[in-house]
Simulated assay, not measured.
Amino acid sequence: MAAARPLCGDQPMMILSGDPPRSRVLTLVLVLIILALAATPFLFPGAKALNVAAKICVFAALVASYDLLLGYTGSVSFAHTMFYGIGSYAIAIALYGMGPNWAAVATGIVVGLPLAALLALAIGLFSLRVAAIFFAMITLAVASAFQVLASQLSWLTGGEDGRSFQLPELLRPGTVLISRNLFGFEVNGRILTYYLVLAISALMILALLRVVNSPFGRVLQAIRENRFRAEALGFRTVFHLTYANCLAALVAASAGILNALWLRYAGPDTSLSFSIMLDILLMVVIGGMGTIYGAIIGATIFILAQNYLQSLMGVASKAASEAGLPLLPGLLHPDRWLLWLGLLFIASVYFFPTGVVGRLRSGGGDKSAGASH
């Protein structure tokens, strides 16, 4: 009889955990994305490209944290944007009230992260004992209440206007760290902030990869497949689910802090909007649930489409018009970009039911690779 596969194994403690991409195409895509993000400030000059790259970094970590819940435990939570908002507002309120200094940044982190974890703990203990649909409804109610509260406490949060603030001098765009050298590149505070966002997001994703490939992560997958059987085997399912909820909340709050630092602003539309929750769900589904790598792919595809599809459609519409093609110029008009964005996502779900990562692992990966999660 074949030996059982060890939980944490005889595999070495790799930086990417014991779960490689298991597909040559997926590995190539991930490497290209990482290299492009690392080189964005120098390869793609301009504020828009840098903003898009920073948003990809933040949302990759945010989506990965949600995948820890949805993909690895099967729990549908609508409170994830609440934790994201807690991180954003904590750093914004601290920097707004205490001024642009590192003590304010530390205060925002020290207040925001524990608050998110405590709320996640409370939600987990009180609602993860019930059926999945009731857990989803409870998290939706809590998130809605928090959004209303943030809008009403205008003396603290700025209400619907949100809070704008300044960053410490080192992170400001006007701070030149390295003047233009012989390559013509200049490193200022804005670029330093971008690399801070990139590095912390990458570390959080690597940490989540380690978590899901640990014995704890195997238990989460067992709970996802059959909660009653996991309980019968002696696992404390409520403890594991609550712990996963707290970990996901901490990463989401950290992503919120990074987003606020990048935007120098925190408000309902950028931190607590329900549309952000829908975007996260779409990114998880597009990339592939239960993979973590899918968060990087899903965030990249979604945010690039969100920012550049309209411009590409304008070019295509103009080309079709000059070629004298009937109907196409109207169908490809930039004003219809949301329609095409929706159709693209419907097509991606239809043709990639297990997400891009699942499809690449099953059809485009190494034949010798192990089975996916």
Rank of each mutant, 00 (worst) to 15 (best):
M1L: 15
P6Q: 06
I15A: 13
L16N: 01
R22G: 04
R24M: 12
V25F: 10
L28P: 07
I34P: 04
A36N: 08
N51S: 13
V52G: 04
A53F: 11
I56L: 03
V63W: 06
V63T: 13
S65I: 04
G71D: 01
S77P: 07
H80G: 07
T81E: 02
M82N: 01
Y84W: 13
Y89E: 01
G99A: 13
N101H: 10
L118V: 12
L125T: 03
R129Y: 13
I133H: 12
F135S: 03
F146C: 10
F146V: 14
L149C: 10
G158T: 05
G158P: 02
G158M: 02
G159Y: 13
E160G: 05
G162T: 04
T175H: 15
I178L: 15
L196E: 10
V197C: 12
I200P: 01
I205E: 01
A207T: 07
A207R: 03
N213H: 08
A222S: 13
E225T: 09
E225G: 07
A230H: 02
R236I: 02
T237W: 08
N245A: 15
A248G: 06
L250Y: 06
A255T: 09
I257L: 12
Y265V: 05
G267C: 03
I276F: 07
M277V: 12
M277Y: 11
G290H: 03
T291V: 06
I296F: 05
I297S: 07
I303G: 03
A305F: 14
Y308E: 07
Y308I: 10
K318G: 02
G324L: 14
P326C: 04
R336W: 14
L341T: 00
G342V: 13
L344G: 14
S348C: 14
P353W: 13
G355T: 04
R359S: 15
S362E: 14
A371Y: 12
